[in-house]
């Protein structure tokens, strides 16, 4: 079995999980949601297998080109989703998050993405690659959860449900923010210092990470100090995830910089 088989299998299983979750949205039966969750976990196991095989086959971290990074971000999002579901039992997050995951994986498998594993250029040969990218993407996965719950908040009507969605958004960001700070900014600076001799060079990818970080700093301060909650917080969380997505895609495709090999 090869990596791509596992990848395709994981994608199919996620799609099945999304089906059960969508069923749950219509019939409201907890059983459907639980089935969806179990199927999603099975997909996650297959996906983990794909990442491990990729690492073994290529001999390097499974996030060195766009195909790999998309797959890893999708994997991290499912991991964050599994953790959040176990903790908060928010079944309604499932269908939307899985749609994002499926979207990311479909994009990864599009013919536009070169899939072959190529040897690493010297700049990427460092264990900081592991630390920097995996922790950053894991942080972004929690931002993805907050994105979904915030959008759901903006749509929801029932005050009790809204309250819970708001709380889950905040909890996801309070996991995502430290992870993103550690992986994206701190590990990034350490690695840049090691590879290029300067911890910060105002490279577009760095700047967009900083912008993303500013947005979530705004989220935290308006919430904790000024008592903002609900609508306005949800807007900031949505904006923050969009900034993270732009850091991930936009910078690579629309702007040029030192990070352009990533």
């Amino acid at each position: 079995m090869t990596e791509s088989t596992f990848f395709a299998a994981a994608l199919a299983v996620y799609a099945a999980a999304a089906f059960f979750y969508l069923l749950f949205l219509f019939n409201g039966k907890e059983r459907s949601a639980k089935t969806g969750f179990a199927v999603a976990v099975a997909g996650f196991v297959l996906h983990t297998g794909a990442l491990i095989l990729r690492t073994v086959e290529s001999g390097h971290a499974p996030f060195t080109n766009m195909y790999e990074s998309l797959s890893f971000l999708a994997w991290a999002s499912v991991l964050a989703f599994v953790l959040v579901t176990l903790r908060f039992r928010m079944h309604r997050v499932g269908p939307y998050l899985l749609l994002i995951v499926i979207g990311l994986m479909a994009l990864a498998s599009s013919p536009l993405m070169p899939k072959e594993a190529t040897p690493l250029v010297p700049a990427l040969q460092s264990y900081w690659l592991w630390l920097h990218v995996s922790v950053t993407l894991l942080g972004e996965a929690f931002f993805a959860i907050a994105f979904v719950t915030s959008l759901m908040y903006l749509k929801a009507r029932d005050p009790e449900k809204k309250e819970r969605l708001d709380a889950v958004s905040y909890r996801a960001i309070s996991v995502g923010f430290p992870l993103f700070t550690l992986g994206g900014l701190v590990f990034g600076m350490v690695w840049a210092q090691k590879a290029w001799g300067t911890y910060w060079s105002w490279d577009p990818k760095e700047v967009w990470s900083l912008i993303t970080w500013f947005v979530f700093a705004l989220y935290l301060h308006t919430r904790i100090v000024m008592g903002w909650k609900g609508r306005r917080s949800a807007f900031i969380a949505v904006l923050g995830f969009l900034a993270a997505l732009f850091t991930f895609f936009g910078v690579n495709y629309l702007l040029a910089g030192l990070h352009s090999y990533a």
Partner: peptide, 10 residues
Amino acid sequence: LAAASVLGTL
């Protein structure tokens, strides 16, 4: 700062 940073990447 965020707005200026965006400008600087454009």
